[in-house]
């Protein structure tokens, strides 16, 4: 096993707009990378290039020293020792669960006994040993997902790719499957790349999160880091539920500011340079000495009320509240901290 390196990877399908432009990434051995981005941002194309289903139109892919693909040539997927969980699971409907899981071993020419043992182990690991003789059609969505995972487990792959594997499952099952993925990662030690558009999923699972938009890689960092220090408007809007304000930023070099330093920014200064500032809802608190705001919307979410507030200059803030407020109420809030994007 070795580090997976994407070097200035690009893909142009000839549609006028490249799907992926200049993505460079190093995924450490045994790492769990989430590729996060809105649909159509090119994340699945990156995954398919890593798998070998698409050839890059520029750049290279390395697994350690081994050059997997460049513009001129590539190692076909069947030689890469990778495995993938597809969004549609891609189980072969004409084979039993055990045959599905054992097929990669059969292709590698393992003996019947060795194969059966490995199949049993893999099915036990996903708690499906009782279903070995069933057909995929007889299983529920979550069970199919686990069969697909077991199929990845049997061959000890170097890299495991997951293409929005939870997109077709209901919310309850998602949490259970997230747990299974974590276990799977710990057990296999394989490098895993997980494509998703759901930031909560990415945060919960990955050791690193890579954010993509419009074919470009915007930021790669561990979840806590990317949450605390997002780079740029797009990442800031994608991670957490913050509001982005345009404020005249004080001259200090600091990117994180607290209320006393922030307060002067809310006094109108014509002609001042405006910066994008991210304010997370949990940092907006009620306080009599703060800003005057009008409640534009209030939605009861169960554990709290989610509010949309309008500032004096018509910009919008988000906040949480434990007590009921009515739409149209005038209240005062302070911003405990904010982050310049």
């Amino acid at each position: 096993m070795a580090q997976l390196i994407l070097n200035h990877l690009s893909k142009d399908f000839g549609t006028g707009k490249p799907a992926v432009t200049g993505v460079s990434l190093k995924i450490r051995e045994g790492g769990f990378l989430a590729l996060l981005g809105p649909s159509g941002c090119g994340k699945t194309t990156v995954l398919r290039m890593i798998a070998g289903f698409e050839q890059p139109s520029d750049g290279e892919i390395f697994l350690g020293e081994w050059r997997l693909a460049d513009v001129n040539a590539m190692v076909p997927p069947e030689k890469r020792n990778m495995a993938m969980v597809f969004q549609s699971y891609a189980l072969w409907p004409h084979m039993s669960v055990a045959d599905n899981v054992g097929y990669p071993l059969k292709v590698r020419g393992l003996s019947r006994d060795a194969r059966d043992r490995k199949i049993r182990e893999a099915l036990e690991a996903v708690r499906l040993d009782a279903y070995a003789d069933r057909r995929p059609a007889d299983l529920s969505g979550g069970q199919r997902q686990r069969v697909a995972l077991a199929r990845c487990l049997v061959t000890d792959p170097d890299v495991v790719l997951l293409d929005e594997p939870l997109a077709n499952l209901d919310r309850h099952l998602r949490q259970e499957m997230e747990e299974t993925f974590r276990e799977f990662h710990a057990r296999s030690g394989a490098t895993m790349i997980y494509v998703t558009h759901d930031q909560a999923e990415a945060m919960a699972l990955a050791t690193d999160v890579a954010v993509m938009a419009e074919g470009k890689l915007l930021q790669v960092a561990p979840p806590q880091e990317i949450y605390a220090r997002p780079e740029g408007r797009i990442v800031g809007g994608l991670i957490g539920q913050g509001a982005i304000l345009k404020l005249p930023w004080p001259v200090s070099g600091d990117r994180a500011l607290e209320w006393p330093a922030l307060q002067p920014s809310f006094v109108p200064k014509p002609g001042a340079h405006l910066a994008d500032v991210l304010v997370r809802p949990q940092d907006v608190v009620f306080s009599d000495e703060g800003l005057d705001v009008v409640v534009e919307a209030a939605v009861f979410e169960g554990e709290r009320h989610a509010l949309r507030l309008r500032l004096a200059d018509d910009q919008t803030l988000r906040a949480f509240s434990r007590r009921t407020v009515a739409v149209g109420d005038r209240i005062r809030v302070v911003i405990r901290s904010a982050w310049r994007l």
Partner: peptide, 12 residues
């Protein structure tokens, strides 16, 4: 993806 899964399984 049914064929792609087979390719990743190593089948020519």
């Amino acid at each position: 993806s049914l064929e792609e899964a087979a390719r990743l399984a190593g089948a020519g």
